[in-house]
Design a protein around this nucleic acid. Structure first.
Lengths: 121, 121
DNA sequence: GTAGAACCTGACATTGATGTCAAGTTCAAG
DNA sequence: CTTGAACTTGACATCAATGTCAGGTTCTAC
């Protein structure tokens, strides 16, 4: 599929998809004229990439991580190097802290929203 | 307490604490000479602010939200305006999506880390 | 009163993914 | 062929919190 359709189906801008390619996160074939041509499973991959960005990972880390993911991309997954494992464990701890903070913030929002819904309270 | 101690106790840089004040997130008394003097409950407030930043809220939104939080700051909490409630509901939805993405990313990291721990697999 | 730590303001830099625009090329349908 | 939509590359802008540095002032302990 072409970049426009991929963008539409993933909700990620064409700009970002080109950036992902530049960062070696997402490969694309090319038509004879140079247009990008994505395989079907690129949709899943883009969604994963977005999730990893949302989790605060940098593109360089994602680039190292992706080859180790079991995915629908067909290719056999590599095994993470010890250095990568160390880095990923640290990222996981950071994500856990982040989830805690998000959950706490959500509770704060809940309280404020609820307090405004019950004027008599 | 002074800014150095507050920074130490919250893990937030002095630079950021000054920025919070500038953004009207955190008030501070001043000594005769102009040094900031924080009350004890500033520690809690700074932690809340950090959590809200981690949740992706902007300082302007946090500034509107803080007066509505029931907190140890003694002051009576205001009631959120309808506009603020609308905004906070949207933020809450965003936070929920974010938690979902973080949780999914955590699972991906788990898989890769675990796969590297069991070489025979 | 003095030394040194701690603090002040102000300015400028950084980060990294993404937005946006320009000028040109390719694709697909009639 | 032609036309307009979709695509290409490249460059520059943006955002918002935080880092960093300079030059000066205040505080505290002796």
């Amino acid at each position: 599929m072409r970049i426009g359709e991929l963008a539409r189906r993933t909700g990620v801008s064409e700009r970002s998809l080109r950036y992902y390619e530049q960062q070696r996160l997402l490969a694309a074939d090319r038509t004879a004229g140079g247009h990008r041509d994505y395989p079907e499973h690129a949709v899943d991959r883009v969604i994963r990439i977005q999730e990893l960005f949302a989790a605060g990972l940098h593109s360089r880390t994602i680039a190292r991580l992706l080859p180790c993911m079991r995915d629908a991309d067909g290719g056999p997954s590599e095994v993470a190097t010890p250095q990568l494992v160390t880095d990923l464990v640290a990222e996981r701890e950071r994500i856990d802290r982040m989830i805690t903070e998000l959950t706490r913030s959500r509770e704060v929002l809940d309280e404020v929203i609820e307090a405004a819904r019950t004027p008599g309270d």
